[in-house]
Simulated assay, not measured.
Amino acid sequence: MTTVQAKADQRSLPQSIRDQLRDEILRGTLPPGTQLRQENLAERFGASRIPVREALRQLEAEGLVSYQLNRGAVVIAMSTSEICELLDIRAALESYAAKLAVPNMVVADIELMKRILASYDVATTLPEWAECNRQFHLALCAPSNNERLKKMIEEYCLSTTNRYPHLRMSLNTQKEDVQRDHYQIVDACKRRAVNEVVSLLEQHILETKREVLAAARLGQ
């Protein structure tokens, strides 16, 4: 292995650890409240604590992990009200991003969203649904050409709220309902119908909020 390859592998190790832990959090293998001890994770992944610490820092930025006194890194547990507050923020940020993005879209943007939705159609597991959903919403926002806005949506909203609706969706709703919304949004994007895209997107996110509230009310 060359020095360059070794350095590349070293850089990719935190991302590899992060991706595995994120998958387990989304899947529910690591439920809210689980302690993520650096020494245990280092032993598990055959790594030093440095890449583990960086992976946990990235998960913290995504809102999946928090640091607690005397406990270290812990998988976040969010209340219904906290989830709903984030969904309100997400609706506002994504709607604004879409308003900026749609006029800038080209054929390649539309095709990318279609490819993501095609992957979503054949996905069979919760982590796959969550990842396809994340990719779709980021692809929709990308033509806004506002990296700071996109980063806020990705790190502050999408990663945190993404896991809860998809866990609920597997029990109470059909994947087809979510996909229908997505395809309607893409169709409106193709027609450059900015106001329609914004309206559809806002309804799509706030419908998730209504279902989260209903699930909590009905004890589901």
Rank of each mutant, 00 (worst) to 15 (best):
W129M: 13
A101Q: 08
N172W: 07
R57A: 12
T80G: 01
H182F: 07
Y164C: 04
H166F: 15
Q184Y: 01
L87H: 01
W129Y: 15
L201V: 05
V122G: 00
N162I: 08
A123H: 03
L59G: 02
E196D: 02
S159C: 09
I116H: 07
R168C: 11
I25V: 15
A130L: 11
D181T: 01
K99M: 05
V194W: 02
L21R: 08
V102T: 10
Y156V: 10
Q68W: 02
V122Y: 04
R217N: 12
I153E: 00
Q15C: 01
K190W: 01
R180P: 03
L93I: 14
V65A: 00
V74T: 06
V106N: 10
L64C: 08
L41I: 10
R163W: 12
P31R: 06
A55Y: 07
A61D: 09
I17E: 12
E85I: 06
S16V: 09
S119A: 15
I89Q: 10
C157S: 09
A193V: 05
V4T: 14
C157K: 00
N195G: 12
V194P: 00
L200N: 05
D109T: 03
R115N: 11
G28S: 09
A47R: 09
D19H: 13
T125E: 12
R18K: 15
T80F: 00
G63R: 00
L64G: 01
E147M: 10
I83G: 00
L93D: 07
Q135T: 01
C132L: 05
E211N: 05
E111I: 04
V75I: 09
R90Y: 14
S81W: 05
S199H: 11
R57P: 00
A193N: 13
H204W: 09
N172L: 15
E131S: 12
A139Q: 07
I116W: 03
V122H: 10
S119L: 11
I110K: 02
L126V: 15
P103R: 06
V212T: 04
T124I: 09
R134E: 14
D187G: 04
N104K: 13
K7S: 05
E60V: 07
L206E: 12
A8E: 14
H166A: 04
A92K: 06
V106G: 09
L86Q: 08
T3Y: 06
A188I: 11
Y183T: 13
E82F: 00
R163L: 06
C132R: 08
A101D: 06
F45L: 10
L201N: 03
Q135R: 14
E147G: 13
Y164H: 09
K114W: 02
K114T: 11
V106S: 10
A142E: 13
D9F: 08
E176N: 07
T125Q: 06
F136L: 14
L140H: 00
L117P: 03
M113L: 07
R27V: 02
H182V: 04
R27Q: 13
D181F: 13
V65D: 02
R191T: 02
R22H: 07
H137A: 00
R134A: 10
G46K: 05
E85S: 11
N133E: 12
E147Q: 13
A214I: 02
S48I: 05
E176I: 14
V186I: 15
N195Q: 13
D181K: 00
E155N: 12
A214R: 11
L213A: 04
N104D: 07
L149G: 04
C189Q: 04
M169Q: 14
Y156R: 10
L138A: 12
V52M: 03
I50M: 08
C189Y: 07
R53E: 13
P165T: 04
